[in-house]
């Protein structure tokens, strides 16, 4: 059963999307647990976001920024009330995050296929520094249509970056366009260590983040777009970047309350 905290996060996302008229809700709902697992399991300090021993989290699929903001607010990085300005003219909380505006965000992302290369560079930097710091980056399955994802994977394997974990949000976005069948086999054939987990199982994700590995690890996180709301799961293409009206909002909240997943 979905824990109350994850229902709360989803409700916040729905509410902020309704207020702002922005947000990619289905894709936000697929990565909530993967983001939350990072902030629960890894080293970071909301009181000191630039702590020099912190681990690094990068949301390469930057259009799920609202999910990151809401999760970070749960960990004390900022007040959820501030996130309600999401996407408005002078807000620091854009629909894609700007690291220079949002405290604790490590990289400005948005254009797909960029965050993973940055993550490789950061992981390499920690290796040169002989530091124990780790990097977790979430990429989308649709994002993985980009050739730069595979370049970065090859480089990370070549450099044996065992301090880098790539979470592949397997939410079936790819199905509509360039399909990536058997992603685990593909990453394995590129030389990465691969595990497949339920991407909504926060404990499984935490344990994979903390597990040691010999080279780059790719965590195939099987997820559902719109997870928690039947309406969205059934119609996620329609909901790709829609915000709910008042009536839809009530229906979606009810679905979340009644969900049995």
């Amino acid at each position: 059963m979905m824990q109350p905290v994850f229902k709360d996060i989803r409700k916040d996302i729905l509410r902020i999307s309704k207020i702002s008229g922005h947000g990619h809700i289905p894709t936000c709902f697929s990565v909530i647990e993967a983001i939350y697992a990072f902030y629960e399991a890894m080293k970071h300090d909301p009181a000191n976001p630039s702590w020099d021993e912190r681990d690094i989290f990068i949301l390469s699929k930057g259009h799920a920024a609202l999910a990151q903001y809401v999760v970070m607010s749960k960990f004390g990085y900022f007040d959820i009330k501030d996130v309600e300005t999401f996407g408005s003219f002078k807000s620091v909380f854009g629909c894609h995050a700007d690291r220079l505006k949002v405290r604790g965000v490590e990289a400005s992302t948005g254009s797909l296929g960029h965050g993973i290369g940055l993550a490789v560079g950061m992981a390499l930097a920690f290796k040169i520094q002989k530091s124990e710091r780790r990097v977790v980056v979430i990429i989308g399955d649709g994002e993985s249509n980009e050739g730069t994802v595979w370049e970065a994977i090859m480089v990370a394997v070549n450099l044996k970056l065992n301090n880098l974990k790539v979470v592949y949000d397997n939410n079936m976005s790819h199905r509509r366009g360039l399909q990536i069948c058997n992603p685990g086999d593909r990453f394995r054939s590129f030389g990465a260590e691969v595990v497949e987990v339920n991407g909504h199982d926060v404990e499984a994700l935490k344990s994979e983040y903390l597990a040691r590995h010999d080279t780059l690890k790719v965590i195939i996180a099987d997820t559902k777009k719109g997870f928690g709301c039947k309406t969205m799961i059934d119609n996620h293409y329609e909901w790709h970047r829609r915000s709910p009206c008042e009536q839809e909002y009530e229906i979606l909240l009810r679905e979340l309350d009644e969900t049995t997943v």
Partner: peptide
């Protein structure tokens, strides 16, 4: 492309 991204990542850590 990745050379640039990786270099940016290196720069981010000093």
């Amino acid at each position: 492309n990745t050379l640039i991204s990786v270099s940016a990542g290196l720069a981010s850590q000093g």
